[in-house]
Design a protein around this nucleic acid. Sequence first.
DNA 1: CTGAAAGCGCTTACAG
DNA 2: CTGAAAGCGCTTACAG
Lengths: 346, 346
Amino acid sequence: MTQSPRDGRSRARRVTLADVARKAGVDKAVVSRVVNADPLLNIRPETRARVNAALKELDYRPNVAARSLRTAKAGTVGLFIPDFANPVYAEIITGAETAAADLGCALMVGSSTAGRGARSYLDLLGQGRVDGLLLAGGTITGEEQATLADRGLPWLFVNRRGPGSGRHVILDDVLGARVAVDHLLDLGHRRIAHVGGPPGADTAHRRHDGYATALRSAGLEEDPRLVVQDVYGPDGGVQAVRLLLDGPEPPTAMFVANVASAIGVLSALRARGVSVPEEMSVVAVHDLPLAEHLIPPLTTVRMPLRALGARATKLLLSVPADHPVEEVVREPIELVVRQSTAGPRR
Amino acid sequence: MTQSPRDGRSRARRVTLADVARKAGVDKAVVSRVVNADPLLNIRPETRARVNAALKELDYRPNVAARSLRTAKAGTVGLFIPDFANPVYAEIITGAETAAADLGCALMVGSSTAGRGARSYLDLLGQGRVDGLLLAGGTITGEEQATLADRGLPWLFVNRRGPGSGRHVILDDVLGARVAVDHLLDLGHRRIAHVGGPPGADTAHRRHDGYATALRSAGLEEDPRLVVQDVYGPDGGVQAVRLLLDGPEPPTAMFVANVASAIGVLSALRARGVSVPEEMSVVAVHDLPLAEHLIPPLTTVRMPLRALGARATKLLLSVPADHPVEEVVREPIELVVRQSTAGPRR
DNA sequence: CTGAAAGCGCTTACAG
DNA sequence: CTGAAAGCGCTTACAG
């Protein structure tokens, strides 16, 4: 605790509403209304001009704490993610950040990587630090959810459906998966494996759905030996390749639920001497700048992650906390064909 | 503007200090001192117990806005980065987040990806939203820096030296580069290229320094035709490979200033049929989980990015704004040898 | 050892 | 058309 009087903040006293009011020769209530563009304010143009001049001259900025205290609104939305290192969340964050800024709000992102998990993040939020909380991916315990509800904090699950919450915004993962699998089917593949996400993940569930649906539409039956579930990430992909290639009748193509897993899939295939796409086609969900530079460049399905983050932010801020939100973001999903997919060798 | 009275926040009135005081039968000043563990408070053990019981029973959480208004401290530190998608920043963020939490602070991260750049982020911060600002990477214009100073907001450059600021925390990039280049020298390489970062980047400058120093220590002279500067990122790497391989006397090894560029280097080398490490060794700064799964697995120099983020946060919060900070984080730098480096073919 | 009071900087009915 | 006043929930000298 440095309690020095010269700690840099006290340098110049901040400009307050009262300063502006004095300079403009009006009451601070008037200044407040001008600042907030109160539509009910009926003010003489010359008075408004005087106020605006004073505002500008003194470079007035409202004190956020005072405003928050008075209005019981923080002007901030929280976003909780599992890990900053996951580029999928980077896209969601960017979308949320943009939307929040458009609404005049700040965004406060927290992750569980910092160690203590969602609980300690919730503690930090305290009372009034955020107006609502976006919960992206990861897992929230029942206790944590109860804590949220206790605090009267509106929350919204992003990219996953919460346990019976009825408050979530997701992407059309079923369609995304279908697009990927249809691409493989169009190329002529019939033995198509699915490198799925972890059993607990809602996105994994929905992508598996899309995979099954696509096969069915093509008159194919799902072969359980061709479906592997593992963590999203390179290690999951490595593991999946081992299981799939050691099976009795290996696939000719793989639909990978996540681009991070696909990185592991490509490296494991190479390590085993399986060439892509000649001997194995690979397509994954989520496009990243990286995908183009993998070896070979990876065919992906681009999902509207930014739109997801933006939409979630808007809904969190506009829909009352006790109303249900169950939205699927309908921005276009795009197949990005690169060099990891080709027809099966015959 | 939804002005509905049922907006979810008003559901249950929040518990205030006064509620706790009433329940415990003391004045709220006492509760405040207990909550904040005021060392000057001399309180009868039984009174303290009563207060603590009431605190727990009502599940009291201080109102951050009220506290901030009173103390003129936000309890939040801001971190501004160029892009969430860059995994290097992910590590810095995680370090900062952990340190902030340890100090009882929240972290507010903003990026310039959201469009409007540093200026609009600064506007959002308004007055009192953060106690200080960490500026990682990227570029800050003189005007922006002036704005910062005007607001009396302490700031600190992270992983770069600000223009004459005298307030920064960086890593020992010179050493990191030396470690990488020494590794190549030890393997027997003599024609070692440098795929450097953009001319404006301070880290690029320091890594180039380390490269030059290492060569000199080995009695070698820097060949300007073997040094290429380009953006940090796969595209920069692709570009660099083209320039280097088309030269008169191509290198046998490449020291790449950034792992993101190395991804492009590997893919470009492969596209040109140059095998790694047989015909070309590649080593890059920054280790990522990804590096192990590149083809071939990439040899890297692991830099203490988390420690950097953590240290910067601590310094920002403890060193007065008008004092200089010029620190190099001395956590260990580690060479991670994988399969992209080998002796030169002869 | 504990209480009463002032005040941080705003916003918002209300009065004139 | 503009002003005076109350109050959001804290913290902190100060009084007793």
